[in-house]
Amino acid sequence: MLPEVPPVTDEADFAAWVAARGDALQRFAFLVTGNAAEAPDLVQDALSHAYPRWRSLATSGTAEAYVRKSIVNGSVSRWRKRRRLTVVEDVEPFAEPLDDPAATYGEADEAWELCRSLPTKQRAAVVLRYYEDLSFAQIALILGCTETTARSHVHRALTTLRSRLKGEDDA
């Protein structure tokens, strides 16, 4: 209804935070979705949710966790809106393969391919652990699950990757 002129302090703080963390949040969103086109939209949505709460988020130091959680939830929501069938597993395949087919296929490529098949929240857990280097407690906070569940997400992904790599070793 009206063009908003937020309090200067909140506006300046929020802008500074977005400038400092925006790129990293986009990379996180991209790794969670594998979709370069969706990553900025997810981050934009998450920031739009965070701004009205900025003062409390900044005061409590939970802005980063809040925005990441919004990104993960937004990714899940977008996939659910697109799917045609009800499925038990919340699995969103990556939209775009980024690997150069001509390059030598290595263990990292196997790991990336595995990520393409993981359910969104499990994939997010793996990204948060091995890209963001977060603790399981921090991962649980972002994903809204218990620390045990967060640990289980990661452990299962590692075990699956181990099986795949062992299969290649034996071949």
Binding site: E11, Q26, R27, F30, P40, E107, A108, A111, W112, Y131
Partner: peptide, 21 residues
């Protein structure tokens, strides 16, 4: 393997400008 995969793909991603307002 996961770390390397994420580093590689994150480096390949080019962030765009996001307007916080």
């Amino acid at each position: 393997a996961f770390r390397e995969a994420f580093e590689r793909h994150a480096d390949a991603y080019r962030p765009v400008k996001v307007d916080p307002y």
